[in-house]
Amino acid sequence: MKAYIIRRLFQAIAVCLAISMISFFLLFLNSDPALLLLPPEAEIEDIEIFKKSMGLDRPVLIQYLSFLKKVLLHGDFGNSFVSKIPALDLVIERIPATLKLSLLAVLLANALAIPMGMISAVKRYTLADNLITFLALVGQAMPLYWFGIMLIIIFGVFLGWLPISGSDSFVHMIMPSITLGAWLLPVNMRLVRSGMLDVLNQDYIRTARAKGLFEKTVMIKHAFKNAMIPMVTVTGMQLSLLLGGAVVTETVFAWPGLGRLAVESIRMGDYPVVQAIVVFFALCVVIGNLLADILTAFIDPRIRLE
């Protein structure tokens, strides 16, 4: 178990490093980052001075190492070009908003996905199953931002029930979290369904039924609990899906979270902020995966022994 965790930990660190490298070298794809960072009307001499002052005249690898050193030792991604505030501070400031939205969305999505997936698996091939799988198919084809805009048009504009943007109260959270939840729902539902189907085929379910347990007990105690094991792994992996969805949802609803900051910073070419967000997102995803793997190994001894 210890060896397994250590191996996964090293892998996680390596992935983080690689992502920081990609986010750093992305700037160099277009030959000269100085041209990206400066306004287009900058004079050649100014560009040279800027390069010297930013250390952009050094070899790329050295620049990356000094970037990495600053990030690792001081959490310093440099100052935002736009607001002149340290990029990391800007990122940290936005975390709570995104966290609130994501948590509510995950809760909403799973509150529907688990019962729907279970019904769909237990009543396989019935009308209910067909309807639920069809709904999942429709949900997967629905562009997230269009769904959000349609919610705004229907509930914000026509019915006037809900505010269309802002983040002051709980009411403001309803539409964004439904949108983000609807993005996760089809995926989660399919996972619960296939997890349940796998488990229902197992011998221990037949045994449980054979010894005369109530169907409800079999489903909840024997089937559902085991079906949840793959769900843990997948929830960890879904963090990246969730964060991606948050980027879009926040843009549609003008929600003041990390996602919107990311879109704004990319549009304005505010690279220190972009790099800080990319590294932060990557850390979340990698840690999420790591925790999920370790948790799965704890719950399911078969994985540990492999």
Partner: peptide, 22 residues
Amino acid sequence: FMVNVMMGFPFILLAMSLVAVI
């Protein structure tokens, strides 16, 4: 490893930054 790295990026951020640069 490469697959894991790519999966660690929220797709949309990577694609957006890429397009913004190129």
